[in-house]
Design a protein around this nucleic acid. Sequence first.
RNA 1: GGUCCCAUCGUCUAGCGGUUAGGACACCGGGUUUUCAUCCCGGCAACAGGGGUUCGAUUCCCCUUGGGAUCACCA
Length: 474
Amino acid sequence: MKVRTRFAPSPTGYMHVGGVRTALFAWLIAQQQGGKFILRLEDTDKAREVEGSGDHIMQSLKWLGLQWDEGPDIGGPFGPYKQSERLAIYKEWAQKLVDGGQAYADPYTMAEVEKFRESAKAAKKPFLFRDYRPHDPPKWDGSQPLRFRSEPKTYQWHDEVMGDLSAGEEAIDDFIILKSDGYPTYNFAHIIDDYLMQISHVIRSQEFIASVPKYLNLYEALCIERPMLATVPFVMGPDGKKKLSKRDGAKDILDYAREGYLPETLLNFMATLGWNDGTEQEVFSVKELITKFNLDRVQRGGAHFDEQRLLWMSGSHIRELPLDELYPKTKDFWPPEATKYGDAYKKAVLGLVQERLKFFGELPNLTTFFFKDLAIDMELISNHKQLKKYEKHDLKLLLQQAKQSLEGSDFSVNDLTARLNDLLEQTGEKPAVLFSLIRIATTQAPASPGLAETLAILDRDVSLRRISATLAKL
RNA sequence: GGUCCCAUCGUCUAGCGGUUAGGACACCGGGUUUUCAUCCCGGCAACAGGGGUUCGAUUCCCCUUGGGAUCACCA
């Protein structure tokens, strides 16, 4: 059987990590088996639909590199891939059920159904519509909701992630398959579409697990073979016990793009949130994920979203990238002053800060002093745990001595290193004092990369100019 | 309430009858000629509880507890 997986979101908002992870798993299975990954938009709820969110979802998947082989924009052999364009198909399949006596028109008003529900609740019994199934329902004319006539029974089935599952007949009920507005419900439409689109694995998140018996019942009524089922647990909020939601601050996945995370970081992070390959490996390339991922090592319980871990993983991926590959990815993240500088200069700066960069959005904070003179902040000295013990006058002499030595330098890293070491000996000061002073004078930053390397990039004019400026204030 | 799912350090997890219960993130120390970061070394920290089964349970079974999902003309 050919492997065909699908991601079938409803266009009701932006994508966050929770949703993307399901898509990732489906995509990984397809890649690994040489199968196809299908994108299908489940836009059957006109009320909840959010304008533009279909595009947004596609953009997110594209940024992550989860390209689909068939979908609403590119079509495919089993289209259309938007449920709202498949209404005639659902109607046709519904009619088959009606003809076979396996579906019937629901004669009740919503208020009446609500009453049934309340009385069931008052009796502390679960509400099952089939307890109120009409004896001779009206002929279905399309204006009433159409219900599936279920056949209650117990089920056992295998889930690729959760293992062997079972449920009693209380889980089976007469659910609505076609709404009175003519649109199908998810419960019906996805069954038909998965079948027609020849989906081999249905990979979806946990909220659907309780409905699986209903689907099994429907597959039987329709006489169609069910695909493999895989239920992925939720991603939980960082502190709460609940499923991660937009309310918990779950970010739009494209926010991570805007903040300067690498897509491969997000993929690695989401995959290892609830999955591991059994070894102690934590950092995976996309390629490795494709070969190593498998559904039965996916955790059954929900995992908390941990921003710290994401940050660490992001830094790790950034560090692993060769500078030549890293540099082009940073182009939208440099401070505005950097536009005046050439690629070679920026690339050299990037090389210096690469190891401390967690995401590209940090670039301005880490590098502005390479591009412009910052206002001299004497508090950096007066608050410095070593320098504050010194008299201003002594610091001035020290800095003057440093300046004198640096004036003779060719500003190569080697020469600068040699001179700085000489200064250490001549002055008898600890590096914590001497280097801190020069660093603050030249960068006006509380932290910076190695001193010799920094000075070499700033170069002679800038370095000496900044030292003089600080000297003037001491 | 019915049905169903889940349960190892704070977090992500390894473990599939016998282990000093391992790793990673975070945190705390120490080291690598300043700071920050990287890297290295070390530390802190867990089998929810109770019954079984067994020579032996983190591991298998049951119960309890805790958490979650679902019971829509939402997906």
